[in-house]
Nucleic acid binder design. Structure first.
Lengths: 257, 257
DNA sequence: CGGCACGTTGACGTTTTTCAATAGCCGTGG
DNA sequence: CCACGGCTATTGAAAAACGTCAACGTGCCG
């Protein structure tokens, strides 16, 4: 698994993921090319590695695989603050502002491409629309964290679970990793527990109950939403927080106006 | 309380809060002036109002008072995702990306100043360093949300409480609203409960226990951290997530390099 | 075959919530 | 001036949600 993955980058321009991201952030071909040119290294990371070495000044764009951001308390308790999926950009805060307050870890083998933080910083001067796109990604992350706070603060285990599965479905759908109501979710129940602030045992039991009610299937790294409508009503799911497009004042800036 | 607060703006340049913000974000006098010039309305909002009307395209800079961001579930449960304190900028995501996924409410009378979202958007083209400052504020918010997720997911009531009081102290200290280890916290226990994902009763009991142990005083809208060291050790508090400075590549950009 | 990681289940403990009642404060209207 | 209602803080008792401990099964892999 130490192959050179530059091949992945060579046809990145036609990579379906890149195509989706282009649409999502409303980027032009030229802008996509700027990003691709900045990317200096594409690699395959094995499962269990840090996505971004802690003192690195790079930003990482995940092309394939799952990772997570987490924090460990002094006594070993772990909280996963977010899952990182294909299309996600990680490390912006660390490289722009010199602070990194969590760790990252690949949950499966991942293909990632790295961009020097310096280059991201320069976008603010040299490619305002791309700087705005970076801010957009960051704001989207913030929206997901907000939803996560709501889940952990005011939803019970069953509701948290429903929300997680639905949100993952929405996110994966956007980047084309979904087959109707099914998607691969190659992580353990322990990680779900650490994400949802529950114990492994309780996750297991809640999952069992939801399976029994015909809400979803979950086995072998696959999820099938059997009754998405009911799942949505259980937690009041709304994918609004994943939406959002660039303000027209940025998207269509006219210096003469 | 419907007075015109433009007076507050008139000497904003010498307003101690603005001075702190200047240092915090490493802005020049000129840059501060740009912001002040963009600000088109300074007002006093009574307690219990929305900080930003839901379909408004404005950004709000809080000069004085407390507010919060929250979300209400269909059955009435409420989760406060963050407290908004003097110096905080709110509504960036809504105005830049056209999505607003939570509501805001003033918890006390507040003095705020409004900036048109259009003007914020234009900063990306016309004042890259200020655009970066906006991104900085947004990233800081993200870091606080991350900590909030950790608290709600993996800390018990006592630890959450300790973390909240310490973080509020750090934040208020940065903007000069702290007197040594004491600060005003003009909110009810219900709001603390809604922030920490607990019931009012449990907040009350936990508070009582912490008072008894000499950890803190909390009465009449004031907090005194009696034993900050122990409070920090209880929750493993670290104010790192509030830090961070602009990447030198942005701060000292040299177009000829 | 043995070891290991993960999933599953039961019994029991702890934390936190809910329900219900009381007390203090404060502004309003009589 | 005082009674009253509304909001907040406080407390007790009981219930629910969730965690911990421990055991066992299962599949994978060397």
């Amino acid at each position: 698994m130490q192959e050179n993955y530059d091949c992945v980058m060579e046809n990145l321009a036609t990579n379906p993921l890149i195509e989706k991201l282009k649409l999502l952030m409303d980027l032009t071909d030229d802008e996509v090319q700027v990003i691709l040119d900045l990317s200096f290294k594409t690699q395959k990371l094995p499962k269990g590695q840090s996505l971004i070495p802690s003192n690195s000044e790079n930003v990482s764009l995940v092309m394939d695989g799952w990772a997570c951001r987490y924090k460990i308390l002094s006594d070993g308790r772990r909280q996963i603050t977010s899952f990182i999926l294909p299309g996600d950009l990680t490390g912006v805060r660390a490289c722009l502002f010199g602070v990194s307050d969590f760790d990252t870890e690949t949950l499966t083998d991942c293909v990632t491409t790295l961009i020097d933080g310096k280059d991201i910083a320069r976008l603010f001067y040299e490619a305002p629309r791309l700087a705005a796109a970076v801010t957009w990604a960051s704001a989207r992350e913030e929206a997901m964290l907000t939803e996560h706070v709501v889940s952990l603060g005011r939803r019970n285990a069953r509701e948290r679970m429903a929300h997680l599965f639905l949100e993952l479905h929405s996110r994966l759908e956007i980047v084309g990793f979904v087959e109707k109501l099914a998607y691969g979710m190659p992580i353990t129940q322990e990680m779900i527990a650490d994400c949802l602030g529950l114990s492994i045992v309780h996750v297991n039991r809640t999952l069992k109950a939801m399976r029994k009610e015909g809400l979803l299937e979950y086995y072998n790294g696959y999820v099938i939403l059997k009754n998405a409508k009911k799942l949505r009503s259980i937690c009041g799911y709304d994918s609004n927080h994943l939406e959002g497009t660039l303000h027209p004042e940025i998207a269509d800036y006219d210096p003469d106006a």
